[in-house]
């Protein structure tokens, strides 16, 4: 699971009002190189929740992203785009879990695939 995916997901258990961002429990992180696509990154830059991305990348052991939400002009900086690219697309949570911030319910991630299906009593 890439951090782009993490940035899009939330806990949708019935009754949970603040299911985002999910905390990350790390068992295994891997890195996979992905083709660099500036247009796609610029598109995504305006969609991502910055703080969630920074925190998530730190839980995966990557601390290069600036804490503060960057000005929109940074997307013209190649250095910034490369780091953003790496955090968003190249870091993978291969094994672990996503944890609901409100209920602590764990959504397992195995073989890189988050299991977001709810139990009968959660819908």
């Amino acid at each position: 699971m890439r951090l782009l995916t993490h940035n899009m997901l939330s806990s949708n258990i019935k009754g949970v009002t603040n299911g985002f961002p999910l905390l990350i429990e790390v068992e295994k992180v891997i890195e996979k190189p992905v083709d660099f696509n500036p247009d796609f990154l610029k598109n995504m830059f305006v969609k991502v929740d910055w703080k969630a991305l920074v925190d998530a990348s730190r839980s995966l052991g990557y601390a290069e992203l600036p804490e503060e939400t960057p000005e929109s002009s940074v997307i013209d900086s190649d250095d910034f785009l490369r780091k953003f690219h790496h955090a968003l697309l190249e870091l993978h949570l291969e094994e672990g879990a996503l944890v609901c911030p409100e209920t602590e319910r764990k959504f397992p991630v195995s073989k890189g695939i988050p299991n977001m299906l709810l139990h009968e009593d959660e819908v």
Binding site: M1, T5, N7, M8, L9, S10, S11, N12, G19, F20, P21, D49, G112, I113, P114, N115, M116, L117, L118, V123
Partner: peptide, 12 residues
Amino acid sequence: LLRADNNLPPWR
């Protein structure tokens, strides 16, 4: 790729 139910989509 994820496991999700389109009846209860998990998007924030």
